[in-house]
């Protein structure tokens, strides 16, 4: 399996605010040749709900394997909250 690492701060910036940016990121991931993408969240200071929703939703729909590393403590609760919401729904429909 081929793997690519992306540093999200360099691709977008350290404050992840707009859902359009998340959508663009997912589209970029879809167009990559690699099967697994690792998103490095080093130095990210904020993630908005809108960004997190678009990112997690896009990640779930993607055929790629997308993983996160180095998630800062300021960012983890929002990302986890959104992932839990989607995961709860997947569990209840299975």
């Amino acid at each position: 399996m081929s793997v690519k690492k992306l540093i999200i701060k360099e691709l977008i910036n350290s404050s992840l605010e707009f859902n359009a940016a998340a959508t663009d990121l997912i589209n970029e991931i879809e167009n990559m040749g690699e099967d697994e993408i690792i998103i490095d969240f080093t130095d990210v200071v904020f993630i908005s709900r809108s960004f997190a929703q678009a990112y997690v939703s896009g990640k779930i729909k993607s055929f790629k394997t997308v993983k996160e590393v180095n998630i800062p403590v300021e960012v983890e609760p929002m990302l986890k909250m959104i992932e839990n919401n989607f995961n709860q729904r997947i569990k209840s429909t299975n």
Binding site: I12, N13, S14, S15, E17, A21
Partner: peptide, 9 residues
């Protein structure tokens, strides 16, 4: 818009 980090700043 993306570069300005509006909310954070």
């Amino acid at each position: 818009r993306k570069n300005k980090e509006l909310s954070h700043n």
